[in-house]
Design a protein around this nucleic acid. Sequence first.
DNA 1: GAGAGCGTAACGGTTACGTCA
DNA 2: AATGACGTAACCGTTACGCTC
Length: 353
Amino acid sequence: MELALSLGDTPKSFSFLDKGSAAINRVKNDVGFCMGIGGPLAKDFESDQIRSLGDERENTRGSSDEPVVQLDLLPLCPVPRNQPAVPLELRLPWLLTRNLSSEPGSSKAQGRGAEVLNRVSLAAADKRSEDGGASASLSSPSSTISSFQNPLDLSVDRRRKRDLETISICTNNERDTERRGGGGCSSRGRDHEGEGEEKENGFMTQKKLRLSKEQSAILEDRFREHNTLNPKQKLDLAKQLNLRSRQVEVWFQNRRARTKLKQTEVDCEYLKRCYETLTEENRRLQKEVHELKVLNTSQPFYNKLLPATTLTMCFSCERVATTAAAAAAATAAINTARTTRHTAANAATTTTY
DNA sequence: GAGAGCGTAACGGTTACGTCA
DNA sequence: AATGACGTAACCGTTACGCTC
C-alpha cells in the first residue's frame, strides 16, 4: 500500500509493509517524522515510535473517546532508547492502559543488587573456569569469542562473563534436573537431554529450548502484571520455572518486542483505514468542488450567495467537520442561502478558505 | 523425507543510567 | 562538583532452531 502525504510543499510517500517495525522504520527513513495515532483500534500495547501530541487539546476539547481521526505529524525527535518510556496514557490519552509501566525502582534502581548477585555467580563461574581451565569451551554457542580476548573489548568481555554466568546457572540447573531425572538445561528435556553439541569450532552448543505451556502461561501472567522484571523477580521466576535467569530475561525482552510489533501492526492497520477514509473524503470534496465550479460558471449569480466550501467547524470541539453530516449541514446552508439569503443556522459556522 | 514458512529463543551490538573512586 | 571507569539493563536487529504443513 502506498500512502502519499503532503507536508507543506514537500510531498512524501512511503509504503506500508507487512511487518510493523519495518514500516515504522521506513516512515522514519523516508519521511522523517512519526505519526501518532489513536482510536479504538489502538489498544493497550506500547510503542516507542508512537507518540501523541495535543494531549492538552484533547483534555480541553470534548470527550477523549470521540471516534475522530487524528493524525499528528511530529518532527522526528528521537527519544533516547532508555529514557523512561512516556506513559501510554500520556501518548494515547484515550486509551485505558493495563500495567505496562515498570514497577517503581524495579530494574535500574535495584541494579546494585543484581550486580552483587551477578558477582557471586561470576565468581563461581570464574572459579569453575579456573578449576577446569575450560573457559573457552564454555563460551556461548553462537559466540565468536575465542579463548583469546582483546582486553579492550569490554562489551565482548562483559558478554563472555554473562555467558559464563549463564553456563554456571545452567550447570546448576542441569544438576538439579538430573537429580529429578530430567534433561539438562531444557526444562522439558524431551528429545534432547541437555547435552550440548560440539561444533567444529569446539564450542558447546545448546539445543534450542521450547518452553512448556505451563512455563509460558506463568511467564505470560507475570508479563501481564509487569512487562519488566527486577533482578530478584527474575531470579525467583527463573527458580519457579526451573529456567536460567537469562532465559527469563530473554523471554521478557522478546515478549516486549512482540508486543511492540503487534502494536505497530495494529497502528499500521489503523493508518490504512485512515488513509482510505481520507482518500474517499478527498474524492468526495473534489467532486463537490468541481460541481460548484460548474455551477459557478453556469450561474454566476450564486457566487455572491454561496459559501466557497463546505468545510465547517464545530462550535463545541473546534474541529473541522468533514463527515457526511457536515456535508449535509453545509448543503442545507447552501440551500438556505439560495432561498432566504441568510446564513446557515447557528449550529455550524461556514469557513471560507 | 524434504523443504518452505512461521514462531520464538537466543545472541551481538548499542545506549542510557547509576555507582564509585 | 566534575569526570571517567565500570556494571547493569533495556532495546533493536538478526540468527537459527523447532515445529507445522
